[in-house]
Design a protein around this nucleic acid. Structure first.
Lengths: 364, 364
DNA sequence: CTGAAAGCGCTTACAG
DNA sequence: CTGAAAGCGCTTACAG
């Protein structure tokens, strides 16, 4: 079925059908109506390949998926892919997955681009030394990243979750629940995401008039036994009703194991807050920070729709501004996580045992 | 850049370039060589939209992703999507993700199909009462399912993991490690996947000359506290060196908690085997059955390549045969999981503390 | 506001 | 084995 069938059914020419689809304002209301009726009757949908060929754009974006997709970022990216996919129809676009060889990353991007199957890319897992942003910029290819472009603070075109604000929210929640001291279990220095989250811990303490001495922060790589050992060091200093905020749910799992090893009660004696609100958090009744993937996906589509990278701006090293204030589309979005509160941060048995409570972080 | 540019560079006509791409056997070796050289020099890739339009096929398949993607199947499907994506180039195809509204599922499939963006679909999460296979069959649309088509044993076109063989492998492993009794912690009766896995437990026991009395099997829904309680019931009957095989890693996590609650040592006193080899399994040193996603993806692509559903065959109710033995492409694949062995099933501290051991299930 | 023409980049018969 | 022609289903200027 083609546009010609619709034209016949509606009693107009094929060009009029095309206009009804692409430039409806050019048509008489009555004509438009007739065409739409015919389209609905026939269940017509334009052939996308023909549109792509003629328009010389695909309205599609490549989304890299990674076979070694284990580890922390993997799961979050899967969720982000789902939300990007769900929001795609609102932007008359779609996503094509691809899996470049990791030792020929740019070649994989180049190849997909060469087929004309996509106009640009969605990048996840941005990292130090990431070769993709510079290459794409050079090629003039539109893209959006999920995660700040850490090496290039002068670039826009990213969406990210404000881990710092999130962790601060976790600290404030714990203090409000009556835990007297709040410690930090994070990753070793040097990971941009981890350092950002750790800063949120300090923010939360100082904003509440607490002081943080160095003994209240320990670090561990993303490994359960190390995390457990690190948390045990923390417990010795955490007299009275203390709590631990963690950079990830896995680290939080280590904290929980340490608490059990010391015959303490999770929540009642020691509070714990994790990050990412994974299945594990739900299974363990662990309070955890949840990344707002749907808003992030919507922001990412807006950035893609706003087209190419705008001129690099700002002083390198300075924080990218969230709002240019000039009426143009915002090309960065820093979104606050929400806190999913469960028994691990409730000193007394929670009043709402089954209901899940969510509290929105304010980004004042 | 188009085929015309390549033709100019190679000093042939554009049709010859097209032939070099599509019917290389028609060309003189020398000519072919020249064209390939030009293609490489220019980094040419054919425009896919033009190919799709002319060939009247997309060589693309829709992959449904689900916003409520939490839960057990979600993660496995994410991994399957990745492997399908990685294998796609070998079949000159690609995947388009889409997220139909769940209360208008078929409409979502129909709509995507109508755009010509895809030729068919990859279905995950097959279930009782699934409306998709019948509809697709009716439409004559090619598809492959990840998971048997439980309601229609007469249909082929599926790949699945042999949970029954996998669990049997787990049982045999535990017995060989010296655990004297092996119990089952599974899901309530009635889920096809769960019932299949439970049958594997029985297989493993009877094949080794053990008998299974009903008290050695308990069930729990996919919830940690219920699983823990169920495992505790099991522990009372598991005198001596016993073990528990579980239908999922989450149930296994419940078993581990029960073991700790009873002051027993995981592995040393009580062995545990989970299913799916999730992050949690790795974090907890839990031996677990891993689904062979890469072979599954390859089999799925072969099925897609073999085209449409072959005539329904076999007697409904009889098990689908794995091999027609007639030289035709196999349109079903039942793949054995592998066992990732960790400390939870090793009575003595493992000899290879860091190395991960994998044992392949035989499907005799 | 509506209709006839050209063309997006390919592939596939069809003559030579 | 190679070259000229038609056409996949659209959109976009361009006359009327």
């Amino acid at each position: 079925m083609t546009i010609v069938d619709v034209a016949a059914a509606a009693g107009v020419s094929r060009q009029t059908v095309s206009n009804a689809l692409n430039k409806p304002h050019l048509l008489a209301a009555e004509t438009l109506e007739k065409v739409h009726a015919a389209i609905n009757d026939l269940g017509f949908a334009p052939n996308v390949a023909a549109q792509q060929l003629r328009r010389r754009r695909a309205s599609a974006y490549g989304f890299e998926v990674n076979p070694s997709g284990a580890g922390r970022m993997g799961h979050i990216l899967d969720g982000f892919l789902v939300e990007m996919t769900a929001a795609a129809p609102d932007h008359a676009a779609h996503l094509v997955t691809f899996a470049p060889e990791l030792d020929r990353l740019i070649e994989g991007y180049d190849r997909l681009l060469g087929t004309g199957l996509v106009d640009g890319f969605v990048l996840g897992d941005t990292r130090h030394g990431d070769p993709r942003p510079d290459w794409l910029l050079e090629q003039g290819v539109p893209f959006v990243t999920f995660g700040r472009i850490w090496d290039r603070p002068d670039l826009d075109g990213w969406v990210d979750v404000d881990g710092r604000a999130g962790v601060r929210l976790g600290v404030e929640h714990l203090l409000s629940q009556g835990y007297e001291r709040v410690a930090w279990l994070g990753w070793p220095d040097g990971s941009p995401v981890g350092d950002d989250r750790r800063a949120g811990w300090l923010d939360g303490l100082t904003a509440s008039g607490h002081d943080a001495d160095a003994s209240m922060a320990v670090e561990s790589v993303q490994d359960l036994s190390q995390a457990t050992a690190a948390a045990e060091r923390l417990l010795r200093g955490l007299k009275g009703r203390g709590a631990i905020v963690c950079a990830s749910d896995l680290l939080a799992l280590g904290a929980i194991r340490a608490i059990r090893n010391h015959d303490l009660r999770l929540g009642t004696d020691i509070g714990v807050v994790g990050f990412d609100d994974t299945d594990v958090a739900e299974a363990l009744s662990l309070t955890s920070l949840r990344q707002p993937l749907r808003p992030a996906a919507e922001a990412a589509w807006r950035i893609l729709a706003s087209g190419h990278q705008s001129r690099p701006h700002g002083i390198p090293g300075a924080a990218a501004t969230d709002d240019e204030g000039d009426g143009h589309a915002e090309r960065t979005a820093l979104l606050p996580p929400t806190l999913t509160i469960r028994a691990s941060s409730t000193p007394e048995p929670s009043g709402t045992p089954t209901g899940r409570t969510t509290r929105r972080s304010s980004t004042s």
